[in-house]
Structure formats: structure tokens, C-alpha cells
């Protein structure tokens, strides 16, 4: 009975998840090599060659990884500081902690635009206060080279999430008790923090951190509104390729889709396998 149920579960997983996603990737692959598509005349690797030669794919991929690493790194550091540094009166999470999670990415992007652009609220307040002499003296935080606007928007969205997440882990993994045991064995405060509490939270939270990293890596609305013209994050680049005036660019967009998916799948598999091995050992 148990075996039948697991077959049914696997069947549902295949039908609802693997088939549509896998089918989409196969479609992208076939379109990119000319096996499908109204304007494709022959099977060739031209689209693949073009995106490698142009360097757009790699540039966008590295830029996306940079944005995602920095956004998640800052968010995790902030949320760990909040989890370990702030003692809330109740073990239950207060209502206001969930509020930022209710905001969609597009809304956060617009808010960032309103607050941080050169003609935004901060700039106007600083101008009125006489801190800057011209409104354009305000530092460029939106559509900037370093992607600061994108990173700030993601940090604002991710930090509350990780704070709630680490608070939950702190209790389920009995981190406080582990700290107490370490102290009774003679560990100093900083040793408890750096060698017990933080490693436990990070190790247990790694799969979730990776999932959020992938979410940021593939984000679209925030970099679309807050990013500069070049380089762009991968999702923005792919959509631009697919929606270009030149219909012959479509295979390049599809090539980017499956290559991105392949790279991410391989990387995630490698990281999670390593994580499992380390946990087992």
C-alpha cells in the first residue's frame, strides 16, 4: 500500500512539475538549434555560437550571480544579527514582521524608485535640508553600475523572511540550549556565537538560502525597473532577446533559457550533494 502511494505521488510530481518544466526546456533546446520555430530553416548551433561570441549571456550570468550573492549575503548577515541580537518579548513572531513579505517585487521596486532616485523623496528631503545644493548631487542609487538599487530592494524583501526563518530554526534546533551547554563546557561568548550558534543556523538553513538565492538570480521585475541598460540581469536579457524587433533573435533567447536552467540545476545539485555529504559525515 505504502509503495502504491509513493508511486502515485511520484506520478503526480512527474505530471505536474517535471513534464511542464522539462517539456519547456526541451522546447527551448529544440527552438534554439532550429528543430522548431516558424522561421528556423535548418538545424544548426548558430544561436549558441552567437550568444557565446557576443558575451551577453556570460556577462548577464555573472552580473546576476553578483547581485544574488550580495543581496543574499547582506540579508543573511542582517537577519542573523537580528535573530541573535534582538530579544523579542514573545516566542511567536509579531504580526509586523510578516508585513514586508506581503509586498510583491514590482511594488518594492516602485517604492525604491520613489525613495532612492535622484528626484525621489530622500533626494528632495536632503535638498530641502540644504545637505545637497542640487537635486542631481544625490548619489546614483537607481539604474546604477553596481546595481545598488536592485540589491537594496532584494535585501528589504529577503531580510524579514530570513529573520522569521532563523527565529524558527533557533527554536527547533535548540540553539539557545546548545549555547548553554557550550558555556558550561567553558566556551567564551564569541566562541559560542561564531562556532556554535551561527554555524548551526547556517548549516540547517542552507537549502532555504540556496532556494532564495535562485529566486533572486532569476528575478525580473526589480532589475527591469531598477537596473541599468547594460549589463542586465539574465531574466531581463532573455526577455529582451525574445521580444526583439528581429524575430531571428528568438533562438538566442531560447538558447539562454535552457543554458541558464542547466547551469543552475548542475550547480544546485553539486551544492546540495556536498551539503548532504558534510551533514552525513
Amino acid at each position: 500500500m505504502h509503495r502504491i502511494l509513493s508511486y502515485i505521488n511520484a506520478g503526480f510530481f512527474f505530471l505536474l512539475i517535471v513534464l511542464p518544466l522539462g517539456g519547456g526546456l526541451i522546447y527551448s533546446f529544440l527552438y534554439s538549434i532550429g528543430g522548431l520555430g516558424l522561421l528556423n530553416e535548418e538545424i544548426s548551433g548558430k544561436a549558441l555560437l552567437t550568444i557565446w561570441e557576443e558575451g551577453t549571456f556570460l556577462k548577464s550570468l555573472f552580473y546576476s550571480v553578483y547581485i544574488a550573492l550580495l543581496s543574499i549575503g547582506i540579508s543573511v548577515a542582517l537577519s542573523l544579527t537580528l535573530t541573535l541580537g534582538i530579544k523579542l518579548p514573545s516566542r511567536e513572531n509579531p504580526y509586523w514582521m510578516y508585513m514586508p513579505l506581503a509586498l510583491p517585487g514590482m511594488v518594492v521596486a516602485f517604492l525604491m524608485f520613489q525613495w532612492l532616485s535622484r528626484t525621489g523623496v530622500f533626494s528632495r528631503v536632503m535638498f530641502q535640508a540644504g545637505i545637497i545644493s542640487e537635486i542631481t548631487d544625490f548619489p546614483v542609487l537607481i539604474q546604477d553600475e553596481l546595481g545598488l538599487g536592485i540589491i537594496i530592494a532584494h535585501v528589504l524583501m529577503a531580510t524579514p523572511f530570513f529573520w522569521i526563518f532563523f527565529r524558527g530554526l533557533y527554536q527547533t534546533e535548540r540553539v539557545k540550549e546548545l549555547g548553554g551547554i557550550s558555556a558550561s563546557l567553558g566556551a567564551q561568548k564569541h566562541q559560542i556565537l561564531w562556532k556554535v550558534k551561527i554555524p548551526v543556523l547556517l548549516q540547517q538553513g542552507l537549502p532555504t538560502i540556496i532556494l532564495y538565492f535562485l529566486f533572486v538570480l532569476g528575478s525580473y521585475e526589480i532589475p527591469l525597473l531598477l537596473g541599468q541598460s547594460s549589463p542586465q540581469m539574465l531574466s531581463v536579457t532573455i526577455i529582451r532577446k525574445l521580444e526583439r524587433f528581429n524575430l531571428l533573435d528568438k533562438p538566442e533567447g531560447y538558447a539562454m533559457i535552457w543554458m541558464y536552467a542547466l547551469i543552475v540545476l548542475v550547480a544546485v545539485y553539486a551544492i546540495l550533494s556536498l551539503h548532504q555529504k558534510r551533514k552525513a559525515s
Partner: peptide, 22 residues
């Protein structure tokens, strides 16, 4: 604008810059 390092993605964004006085 912005030393030509970036460009508004669409007309609406350019009109917004004009309306803002940028």
C-alpha cells in the same frame, strides 16, 4: 543624462525624467 552610461528603458521613463526636470 547620467553621462550616457545608462538610458531610460522606455518612453514612459523618459517622459517621467522630463516631467521631473531631470
Amino acid at each position: 543624462w547620467r553621462k550616457g552610461e545608462t538610458f531610460p528603458e522606455g518612453l514612459a521613463a523618459m517622459h517621467r525624467l522630463f516631467a521631473n526636470g531631470e
